[in-house]
């Protein structure tokens, strides 16, 4: 097992390096001249000597690989530079917002999983019945509906017409758990429902597949209760491919928080990303992109490790 963990973790290293190169390239090479960005496009107001000095200070006269390594060294030690608009360290700004986004994402993930897994199992077991059709309709609807629009409609219904839940805003669980739950219901349900589409479908088809296997027929033939057949023989094996989808969805979940935070006016990392995009605050964008990519890679790593725990074939190199 430990060999598998080490192998898998080592695999993540080249990917991480490419991620960092991409982030560096995206923002340092494509965005043109940082000096111009810092001086707010009013480069004319700076003397040529001042520009030169600024370039030297920022290390812009170094060759690109050197610039990259310097940037990487700083990033690894937690220094992602300073925001152009607020002059605040990027790491601090992100750490400020991260708990909010994590609360939203985790609750949404939990809601998504606890709807789609049972629904997918029910649909797979009761193939071609109304439960199956209902699950298909819900899944298709969840995939095709824009998450932000679903959120807007929820606000309209629960916040404006019936006024049972606050339409927007955020309270941290650490400050006031009861209020926090109230504020978190709509955004988390929206984001959670958005995840259910592909999860439900994967769970259903995986369940259908497993239930047609010989070992399930054997389990039934030896007189096991149907409940036990479905849970012990069916579900456990059907969960494996679903786990992969769960891992892959981490990206969609992190990305989804950007729109959902905007819809519900939640001051999380997603909103930070958006405001920094609108104000062309390149260091902040760079930081948010890097942190979200690392979050996704971590989720994938955890998924793969879990896969190894659950499936001995993987662990022992098939």
């Amino acid at each position: 097992m430990s060999g598998y963990i080490v192998r898998r973790a080592l695999n993540a290293i080249p990917v991480l390096i490419f991620v960092s190169i991409l982030v560096f390239a995206l923002t340092n090479v494509m965005s043109g001249d940082p000096v111009e960005a810092i001086s707010g496009g009013s480069e004319a107001s700076l003397t040529p000597e001042a520009i030169d000095q600024l370039r030297e200070e920022l290390g812009l006269n170094d060759p690109l690989p050197v610039q990259y390594l310097n940037w990487l060294r700083a990033a690894v030690s937690g220094d992602l530079g300073k925001s152009i608009t607020t002059n605040r360290p990027v790491t601090e700004a992100i750490l400020d917002r991260l708990p909010t986004t994590l609360q939203l994402a985790l609750v949404a993930w939990f809601i998504g999983v606890s709807i789609s897994i049972p629904l997918g199992i029910l649909a797979g077991v009761n193939r071609n019945t109304w439960i199956d059709h209902l699950a298909t309709v819900l899944a298709l609807g969840g995939v095709a509906m824009p998450a932000f629009w679903m959120g807007l409609m929820f606000i309209l219904m629960f916040g404006v017409w019936w006024q049972v839940l606050p339409p927007s805003g955020f309270v941290s669980v650490f400050d006031d758990p009861a209020q926090a739950a109230k504020y978190l219901v709509l955004p988390a349900v929206t984001l959670g429902l958005h995840q259910t589409g592909s999860l439900t479908r994967q769970m259903r088809s995986s369940m259908v597949e497993v239930l047609s296997q010989d070992y399930v027929r054997t389990a039934r033939a030896k007189g096991l209760k149907e409940r036990r057949v479905i849970i012990m023989h069916g579900m456990r094996n059907a969960m494996l491919p679903v786990l992969t989808v769960l891992g892959l969805q981490a990206g969609a979940l992190v990305g989804g928080t950007v729109v959902i935070e905007q819809v519900f006016a939640i001051p999380g990392m997603g909103r930070l990303a958006l405001t920094s995009v609108l104000s062309q605050d390149i260091p902040v964008i760079q930081g948010v992109v890097l942190v979200s990519a690392i979050a996704v890679l971590t989720a994938n790593l955890v998924t793969d490790l879990l896969y190894g725990v659950l499936d001995p074939r993987i662990r022992h190199g098939r």
Binding site: G251, G255, G256, V258, L274, I285, V288, A293
Partner: peptide, 11 residues
Amino acid sequence: IAFPGIIFALA
């Protein structure tokens, strides 16, 4: 793939 689609597009 590690970059969430919308964040990458935003960037």
